[in-house]
């Protein structure tokens, strides 16, 4: 097994406990959310129909039928997703800083491994990617299960059934997490991963030059954004409406690739020549 893969394995194991807690919280919270929200609706329906003597039709008219969309708007459902996103965003920083500021400075060991230091960087990036993709796939598996639970609780005539794809598309945030087409997937996740590389590189600037590095890191982040949006900016400000939308899109993709490559190259340089324990 190459040292890169061993590093990935190692980095994953280092965060696995917290990650599994995140997964657990997501599953439990969303399942409970489905059950509670469905039961509440059912209780409401029962109360209205038996105590208030509303007919089923009037009830449906007044309160609407129940669908999975009602579940997705609860904290039970969105909360854990937000928690996962925030945790992973923090971990993008923590995955580096823990090696310097942990109880034992593990960075000594990592930098003294008989392998290109870039592998440490790539392994950390890979770990973040795998964690993100892992959470996304778990959510994807959870949705149909939750949908089935809902259907078990709510009788057919009180609910509107949605397919998993419909659930995703009807909810803005989910639509970003689960793009409809493969191209969109590539764009969203490509941009996300590019951002991770840029942030990693900024962190390495800070770790190499400390206070001065903070400025360099921020400048680097800004510079990356500038490059990424350069086709849009050029089209909007300099050569107004010179490009076709498709051309702008392709140029932007190219820029994203350039920013990613630049980040990796710079990080390699910093790790080799400038990094400090």
């Amino acid at each position: 097994m190459s040292r890169y893969l061993k590093l990935v394995d190692f980095e994953i194991k280092r965060f696995l406990k917290i990650y599994l807690v995140l997964v657990g919280v997501t599953i439990v919270s969303q399942l409970l959310g489905v059950i509670f929200t469905s039961k509440n609706y059912l209780n409401l329906a029962n109360e209205m129909m038996y105590k208030e003597m509303l007919s089923k039709e009037t009830f449906l008219q007044q309160y609407g039928s129940f669908s999975f969309l009602q579940v997705t708007q609860t904290t039970w459902f969105v909360g854990p997703i937000a928690l996962c996103i925030v945790t992973l965003l923090i971990y993008v920083f923590f995955i580096w800083y823990r090696d310097w500021f942990g109880k034992n400075t593990f960075i000594y060991r990592l930098l003294m491994l008989p392998t290109a230091r870039l592998n440490v960087y790539l392994a950390k990036a890979t770990t973040i990617f795998l964690f993100v993709l892992g959470l996304v796939s778990i959510q994807l598996i959870l949705l149909p299960i939750e949908n089935n639970i809902l259907q078990l609780i709510i009788p057919t005539d009180l609910r509107t059934d949605l397919a998993t794809a419909e659930i995703i598309n009807s909810f803005y945030y989910l639509a970003i997490l689960f793009p409809y087409s493969f191209t969109e997937f590539l764009i969203y996740y490509g941009l996300g991963f590019m951002a991770v590389f840029v942030v990693f590189t900024s962190i390495l600037f800070e770790r190499s030059f400390r206070l001065k590095g903070v400025v360099l890191g921020v400048l680097y982040g800004g510079f990356s954004l500038l490059i990424l949006f350069s086709p849009v900016l050029i089209d909007g400000l300099i050569l107004v409406n010179f490009f076709y939308p498709l051309e702008i899109f392709l140029l932007s993709c190219l820029m994203a690739v350039i920013v990613t490559a630049m980040s990796i190259w710079l990080s390699n340089y910093l790790l080799k020549n400038k990094i400090r324990v």
């Binding site: 190692f10 280092r14 942990g102 109880k103 034992n104 400075t105 593990f106 000594y108 060991r109 003294m112 491994l113 008989p114 392998t115 290109a116 230091r117």
Partner: peptide, 28 residues
């Protein structure tokens, strides 16, 4: 990178993670 198979450094504090057992550190 190959030099790290020829030269090693023992800093004044241990460089392994606190949650590791000694055997984990050796395995690493």
């Amino acid at each position: 990178k190959g030099s790290y198979e020829k030269i090693t450094f023992i800093p004044d504090a241990i460089t392994m993670l606190p949650q590791m057992k000694i055997s984990d550190a050796m395995q690493f």
